[in-house]
């Protein structure tokens, strides 16, 4: 019997690595997709040392929309059908820059929403009806309400939220499952440049622990750490006359 195949899109991201290290201990096989060959090789060697049965780098630009279908076919042909897909790539971007640079804004939306949605469709298209498949998508609390400081990133993450909701609805009762992860502030290279002190900051390892638990329990949406669920519930419900004054 061959072991589970886990495909990680954006395998050098801090959250993806923390999660993959936990899965590696179970002896799974990995396909690690990303742009930076040297780093993918480092991550692959690391995961094999930590117990993975194998880890194969797949060098590609994950936001290259035209290449998605053929990449999925390649993965199926070389490694067989995956049991788990992790969408962990993305770019935060600087809101003030994106607002003035339409091409950069398009790139941010393509990376964070369009390509992420299409990867899921492509993997589901190639899936046999009885084949179990868990799709883990890293969203963000930024997708819960449009805010002046990051609504371009937030809109893409909100789009993915609706998209994954729809897929979960469409595939209810089948062995295809979907987990949307909504981290708050996580100390990762993506957030380099923020001052990371205070109780709201979390670590990739904490997020990975929460993802693992959510997958095990069959949760559909997981806020990580948990306190972001009540925080975002309040932010979503704030009346406009209050919200418009907030500098968040």
């Amino acid at each position: 019997m061959s072991t589970d195949l886990v495909v990680i899109l954006g395998a050098t991201s801090a959250i993806a690595q923390a999660y993959a290290r936990r899965r590696a201990a179970a002896g799974v096989r990995f396909v690690l997709a990303g742009r930076r060959e040297e780093r993918l090789k480092v991550v692959a060697a690391d995961l094999v040392t930590r117990g993975a049965a194998s880890a194969e780098p797949l060098l590609m630009d994950l936001s290259a929309i035209g290449a998605i279908e053929s990449a999925v076919e390649t993965i199926h042909a070389r490694f067989g059908p995956p049991q788990e897909i992790v969408l962990a790539y993305g770019i935060l971007g600087e809101q003030t820059v994106l607002e003035r640079d339409v091409a950069a804004a398009q790139a941010a939306l393509d990376v964070n929403f369009t390509s992420a949605a299409l990867w899921q469709l492509a993997f589901l298209k190639g899936r046999e009806a009885t084949q179990p498949l868990t799709t883990i998508v890293i969203g963000s609390v930024a997708g819960d309400r449009g805010r002046r400081t990051n609504f371009i990133y937030g809109a893409a993450k909100a789009g993915i939220d609706i998209f994954v909701q729809g897929l979960a609805h469409a595939y209810a009762g089948t062995p295809a499952r979907f987990v949307l992860v909504k981290p708050g502030f996580v100390d990762t290279p993506m957030t380099a440049g923020f001052v990371k002190s205070g109780p709201l900051w979390s670590t990739p390892d904490r997020v990975a622990t929460d993802i693992e638990r959510a997958v095990r329990r069959g949760a559909r949406v997981v806020y990580t750490p948990w306190f972001w669920r009540p925080i975002m519930a309040v932010i979503r419900r704030l009346p406009w006359f209050v919200f418009r004054r907030l500098k968040i």
Binding site: E94, T149, N150, F185, A192, G193, F194, V195
Partner: peptide, 10 residues
Amino acid sequence: MDRNTSERQQ
């Protein structure tokens, strides 16, 4: 969240 790339941290 404010960017503080150049700012020093204690």
